[in-house]
Amino acid sequence: MDILLAIAIMALGAVVLGALLGFASVKFKVKGDPLIEKIEAILPQTQCGQCGYPGCKPYAEAIANGDEINKCPPGGIEGVQRLADLLGREVKPLDAEEKPKQIAIIDENTCIGCTLCIQACPVDAIVGAAKQMHTIVAQQCTGCELCLPPCPVECISMQVIGENIDNWKWKYPVVEIKSEMRKAAAMKAAA
């Protein structure tokens, strides 16, 4: 009798724990591939396709599958560095020229309202309607340049976003210890 009770208790325990585990695996399921997501979080989301993939996510997937980490020019060398840190790979020089951050500007007097650029923009940063002048919402433009080639009247140009008071950063404090030391030494010598 006792042994039957023991078996029953163990069986009950097994069922309960099994149910719990099953529930946990559904409830705390890890969505997607966490590595790809981490890689994608580092990519700048410019969606320009310069890496040879149709967007940042496909490139993130490709990196996860072993592609090189130095193909994203908008991410710059800093992006390569962070990818290298994440993946434990070696830092490589960027496979292209690093460009300063820029945004597209439409010359509104030349625009013929053909809507071709709207279709090209990956982030819907261009507003306009057929035969109406188009314009670019500066805050949303990622500077991917994809709208330049389709424009039949070449009225879109890229403008570098310079430093202004709002985006200015304090510089890394540099003290030229050597020259300062030399100065100090010279002063001592003079005295």
């Binding site: 940042c56 990956p122 982030v123 819907d124 949303q140 950063k169 304090w170």
Partner: peptide
């Protein structure tokens, strides 16, 4: 220096998140 770097990163991250959202929506 550290604070302004962190702020700049935050700004970039927000812009990237927004771009991603808009791209996915498109």
């Amino acid at each position: 220096f550290a604070k302004s770097e962190i702020w700049a990163r935050e700004r970039e991250k927000n812009a990237a998140d927004q771009a991603k959202l808009r791209f996915e929506f498109k």
